[in-house]
Every structure is written in structure tokens, then in C-alpha cells.
């Protein structure tokens, strides 16, 4: 009787191990669906946030035609940077989760085929970088490594899509193991996401994006 029970149990265990090994992909899909719902909530939040900071926005409008709406992406990217400035890895991971979702739903409009391909490549690369930042809530050093590539993606995305907001491309020569790295900010003052509280003001504005 008991032996029988044990064998049934053993079979169940091996069975579940087998299932665990095969069930990976469907799990991921479910997870994505859930985060997607979460994202829609986030976008909403962003609307009110934007209004409160409207004085930061540039009055002079972009002369080129906008090829899409980057507000949701930029809002998550800025809050990611703010978290890194404060050396807060877990909050950086959360912002980066939102960034992943914003990047996934972003659609550009009216682009040439070539530009559209480039945007798709940027999105793919930025999503990969943001996913790493989201997954490394206990490793701020690794988060900052991925911010180097992510910031280049964001910069290139803005160059194609355009922005109505006055933005700054900042540069710190000491970031990225002294190789130097850029990041995008919405204020002129330097708040360095790579150095954090060690050297929060290291760096300078390299370019104004309008």
C-alpha cells in the first residue's frame, strides 16, 4: 500500500519535472500579457505627470514632423535614470520593466522602409538592454553597463522620431570604465546615472536636442 503510494508520488515528481522543462515558453507569454495590462495603467499615470512639469517643456516646437509618440518611452527612461542617480537598483528595475512595455507597443508612422528597419533594430536592442536592467535589481553595476547601450538606442530613436520636448545629450568621460558614455536628460543640470552618489554631477551637456 505504502510502496504503491510512494511510486505514484515518484511518478508525479518525474512528471512535473518533465512538464517544468517543457512549459517555459507558455509561461513567458502569460507573463508578457500581464505586464502589458500593467503598462496601459502606466501610460495613464504619465499624463498627469507631464502636466505638472509642463514648464520644463520647450515652447518652440520641433520643425520636423513627428514620426511617433515617444512620451511613454521617455518617461520610463527618465525615471530609470533618476533611480540610478539615487543608486536605487530595485526602483531602476521597475522603471525598466515599464520601459520594456513602452518599447514593445511603440509604433512609428510615415517612415521610409529603411528608417522603419532601423527603428525596429533600435527597438529590439533597447528592449534587450531594458530587460537586462529589469532583471538585475540586485546588480546596479550591470544595470549601468546596459544603460550605456540603451542610451545610444534612445538617442538614435529620438533622432529618427523627433521630439517636442527640449532634451539634452549629456556625456561623462569616466563612465563605462573610463571609455565614456552618454545619456539623455530633460534638464540642463547634470545628474549622472552612471556614477550615482559617488559623483552625481560628473559630466557635461554635449548637445541640445530640439
Amino acid at each position: 500500500m505504502n510502496i504503491k503510494r510512494i511510486s505514484v508520488f515518484s511518478l508525479a515528481v518525474s512528471g512535473s519535472l518533465f512538464l517544468a522543462s517543457c512549459g517555459n515558453s507558455s509561461n513567458t507569454e502569460n507573463h508578457n500579457d500581464m505586464s502589458h495590462e500593467h503598462h496601459e495603467g502606466m501610460e495613464h499615470d504619465h499624463g498627469s505627470h507631464q502636466d505638472s512639469e509642463s514648464n520644463e517643456r520647450s515652447v518652440s516646437s520641433n520643425s520636423g514632423e513627428l514620426k511617433g509618440d515617444l512620451t511613454s518611452i521617455m518617461s520610463s527612461y527618465f525615471s530609470l535614470n533618476e533611480s540610478l542617480v539615487k543608486d536605487n537598483a530595485s526602483s531602476a528595475a521597475k522603471s525598466s520593466e515599464n520601459l520594456v512595455e513602452a518599447l514593445k507597443v511603440f509604433k512609428a508612422e510615415g517612415l521610409t522602409e529603411e528608417a522603419q528597419n532601423e527603428v525596429s533594430e533600435i527597438q529590439e536592442s533597447a528592449i534587450e538592454n531594458a530587460e537586462h536592467i529589469a532583471a538585475n535589481s540586485d546588480n546596479i553595476e550591470h544595470q549601468r553597463e546596459h544603460l550605456v547601450s540603451l542610451s545610444i538606442d534612445i538617442k538614435d530613436l529620438i533622432a529618427i522620431i523627433g521630439t517636442t520636448q527640449k532634451l539634452y545629450e549629456d556625456y561623462c568621460p569616466m563612465a563605462n570604465n573610463n571609455e565614456g558614455a552618454i545619456w539623455i536628460s530633460q534638464t540642463k543640470e547634470i545628474n549622472n546615472p552612471y556614477m550615482g552618489s559617488n559623483m552625481p554631477t560628473c559630466g557635461k551637456v554635449k548637445r541640445v536636442i530640439e
Binding site: 510502496i3 510512494i6 511510486s7 508520488f9 515518484s10 511518478l11 515528481v13 518525474s14 518533465f18 522543462s21
Partner: peptide, 17 residues
Amino acid sequence: KRTLVGLLVVLVGIQFI
């Protein structure tokens, strides 16, 4: 004894995954 037998069954069982 029964636990050991059970464990053995599991170990053999998972070899077929």
C-alpha cells in the same frame, strides 16, 4: 527502505525525460 525505493524509482524515471 520504502523511501529509498521511491527515490530510486524517481531517479530511474527521470532518465527517460
